[in-house]
Computed example of a mutant assay.
Amino acid sequence: MTHQENLTRLIAALETSADVRASVSDAPGSAVFTGSGDSLSSALLAQAYGHRAMSSGDITFMGRLPVGVETVVGISHSGTSGATVQALRLARSAGARTIAITSNSDSPLAEAADEVQVVPSLHVEEAVPVAGHLMLGLGVAAVCGADVDGATSALASRLRDLTSLVEETVEGLPAEAPVSISLLSLPDLRGAADFWMLKLIEATGLAVRSVPLEESGHVDYFLGPQPHLAVQLLGAYSRFRFDRLAAALEHTGQTVQQVAFPQQAGEAGIDAVLTELGGAVVGTVVAEAAAGRWGRPPFRGGAVNMDAAHIKLDAQAIS
């Protein structure tokens, strides 16, 4: 299946999906949104509403909540991610309000929560997954108090508008795989960059990192001499800084690829979330296309053990 077909199928699934229906009584105050892997990328979207986001392992394995947190929102599509379940249990025992965002209302995560925001599952075949992140992201917006009515069709419309950007980005990929990749972004596309990182790792098996734009200027300048790819995710802000850094990185022999998203300055709330989710889809489709171009099948061609036993907690059975 081609990357164009994958994008078309995902758009069709969104167009026929039920909307996320807000089911949490009140928007949380002083909240931390937490998850692992793809779900941590979903948690990052809460920053558009002024909340914090952190890995569920940072809560579970430190054994304490961040200072000042009144609400912990655990995110897991299956509701069975061990560290996230344990983080909600820890939060509940500490007297914090707990909310779960999941597609599985009968899951251990839902059982650990005072309230549950259920999200629909998109029924679409995927080699490199993104559909779960999209619905969880809309669930995050709902918990934050956004009006998500019609958001799935609005997201489908945005993805249709991004089709040409996908093609331009795929065509601009290097012919040969780099040794490593950096994703450069400002906060408006930080969640998208984080998701790109995950999908490029899954799809290509390369070392990839997401880094704030200015920090790349302080560190990536020294990378090499092995071939390194710097992908810049541009929104409505500071194009001059992206361009200046691109010139500097190219001067050191790196390959720089700019991906410019249509965005209005000052986007907030659900509009900001839709931009980030659209960016995540572009990254996923491009990552799978890169794997094909570079001869690096996703998940190392099936060589990676995908039973996920290492993210379940032996001390507390999760099923």
Rank of each mutant, 00 (worst) to 15 (best):
Gly50Tyr: 04
Glu288His: 12
Leu65Pro: 09
Ala18His: 08
Ala260Glu: 14
Glu111Asp: 11
Pro66Arg: 02
Pro178Ile: 07
Val286Ala: 12
His251Lys: 14
Asp58Lys: 10
Arg209Ala: 14
Ser103Tyr: 00
Gly205Ala: 12
His123Thr: 03
Pro187Lys: 11
Pro178His: 07
Leu213Phe: 10
Leu184Glu: 14
Glu267Ile: 06
Ile201Arg: 15
Pro297Gly: 09
Ala96Thr: 02
Ala151Lys: 09
Thr16Ile: 05
Ser56Val: 03
Gln4Leu: 10
Gln316Ala: 09
Thr34Lys: 13
Leu136Gln: 11
Asp114Arg: 09
Ala177Glu: 13
His123Gly: 02
Arg296Asp: 03
Val273Tyr: 04
Ser153Gly: 07
Val119His: 10
Leu313Gln: 14
Gly302Lys: 00
Gly68Arg: 09
Ser56Gln: 10
Pro120Glu: 09
Ala315Cys: 02
Ser121Gln: 04
Thr84Leu: 04
Leu249Ser: 07
Thr8Tyr: 09
Val85Pro: 11
Met306Asn: 04
Gly217Phe: 09
Ser56Glu: 01
Val286Glu: 11
Ala207Arg: 14
Val128Gly: 00
Ala13Arg: 07
Ile59Pro: 06
Leu186His: 13
Ala248Met: 15
Gly172Asp: 12
Ala309Met: 08
Ile181Thr: 09
Ser25Pro: 07
Gly35Ser: 06
Asn305Asp: 06
Glu215Trp: 08
Leu45Glu: 11
Asn6Gln: 09
Thr80Phe: 08
Met54Gln: 12
Leu234Asp: 15
Val72Cys: 04
Gly35Phe: 01
Lys312Arg: 15
Val219Thr: 14
Val256Trp: 07
Ile99Asp: 08
Leu173Ala: 10
Gly217Thr: 12
Gly172Tyr: 01
Ala83Gln: 01
Ser42Gly: 12
Thr204Val: 14
Val140Ile: 07
Pro120Cys: 00
Gln254Ala: 06
Asn305Lys: 02
Gly269Gln: 12
His133Cys: 05
Ala291Trp: 13
His133Lys: 11
